Simulated assay, not measured.
Amino acid sequence: MVHPDEFKGPEADALPDTATVPAELAALYLCMTPAQLADLRKSKRPDGRAGHGASIIRPVEGGAAAGPKDAVLYQLGTLRGFAKAHTAPTAFDTASDSGLPGWLSARLPFFAEREPRIKRGRRVLIGGAWDRADPLREKRFAELAKGRIRFTSLTCAEAAASLWADVASHRAFAEKGLALLRSETQAIEAALADTGLLPAAASNPETVA
Results as ranks from 00 to 15, higher is better:
residue 138 E to Q: 10
residue 135 P to E: 04
residue 188 I to F: 07
residue 108 L to I: 03
residue 91 A to C: 06
residue 174 A to K: 03
residue 119 K to Y: 02
residue 179 A to K: 10
residue 118 I to F: 06
residue 162 S to W: 03
residue 128 G to A: 09
residue 156 C to Q: 08
residue 76 L to F: 01
residue 181 L to S: 13
residue 114 R to C: 12
residue 134 D to V: 07
residue 147 G to Y: 05
residue 87 T to R: 00
residue 114 R to F: 14
residue 135 P to K: 11
residue 122 R to M: 13
residue 103 W to P: 00
residue 137 R to I: 15
residue 131 D to N: 15
residue 183 S to H: 11
residue 141 F to T: 01
residue 157 A to W: 15
residue 129 A to G: 05
residue 141 F to D: 02
residue 119 K to L: 05
residue 165 A to V: 10
residue 85 A to D: 15
residue 150 R to D: 08
residue 78 T to W: 05
residue 137 R to T: 15
residue 181 L to H: 09
residue 88 A to R: 10
residue 161 A to T: 06
residue 72 V to A: 12
residue 70 D to C: 14
residue 154 L to E: 02
residue 173 F to E: 00
residue 132 R to F: 14
residue 147 G to A: 08
residue 86 H to Q: 13
residue 135 P to H: 09
residue 119 K to R: 04
residue 88 A to E: 03
residue 99 G to N: 10
residue 163 L to G: 13
residue 181 L to K: 11
residue 189 E to R: 10
residue 103 W to Q: 00
residue 95 A to P: 06
residue 191 A to H: 09
residue 83 A to N: 06
residue 72 V to N: 03
residue 130 W to L: 08
residue 113 E to L: 10
residue 187 A to F: 00
residue 97 D to G: 08
residue 109 P to R: 09
residue 159 A to R: 01
residue 129 A to S: 05
residue 155 T to S: 09
residue 86 H to C: 11
residue 184 E to K: 15
residue 98 S to I: 12
residue 85 A to V: 14
residue 156 C to N: 04
residue 191 A to S: 11
residue 176 K to F: 14
residue 162 S to M: 08
residue 191 A to M: 09
residue 188 I to R: 07
residue 165 A to W: 02
residue 151 F to N: 04
residue 190 A to Y: 05
residue 138 E to K: 09
residue 130 W to P: 00
residue 70 D to V: 11
residue 127 G to T: 03
residue 133 A to G: 07
residue 90 T to N: 14
residue 72 V to K: 13
residue 163 L to P: 01
residue 175 E to P: 00
residue 84 K to T: 06
residue 74 Y to F: 09
residue 79 L to Q: 08
residue 93 D to M: 04
residue 141 F to R: 02
residue 168 A to P: 03
residue 69 K to F: 10
residue 162 S to V: 06
residue 140 R to L: 05
residue 120 R to N: 12
residue 164 W to L: 15
residue 161 A to N: 06
residue 182 R to V: 13
residue 143 E to C: 12
residue 87 T to P: 01
residue 163 L to M: 05
residue 71 A to D: 12
residue 89 P to N: 04
residue 145 A to F: 07
residue 172 A to H: 04
residue 170 H to S: 12
residue 85 A to R: 15
residue 131 D to P: 09
residue 113 E to V: 07
residue 187 A to L: 05
residue 158 E to C: 01
residue 148 R to G: 02
residue 130 W to F: 13
residue 71 A to S: 14
residue 115 E to S: 09
residue 77 G to P: 09
residue 99 G to D: 05
residue 121 G to K: 02
residue 127 G to D: 05
residue 115 E to G: 03
residue 174 A to W: 01
residue 177 G to H: 00
residue 175 E to H: 06
residue 164 W to I: 13
residue 115 E to F: 03
residue 137 R to E: 15
residue 93 D to E: 12
residue 185 T to Y: 10
residue 82 F to P: 09
residue 82 F to N: 06
residue 137 R to C: 15
residue 180 L to C: 09
residue 181 L to Y: 04
residue 98 S to M: 13
residue 102 G to D: 01
residue 191 A to G: 07
residue 72 V to S: 10
residue 128 G to Q: 05
residue 115 E to Q: 09
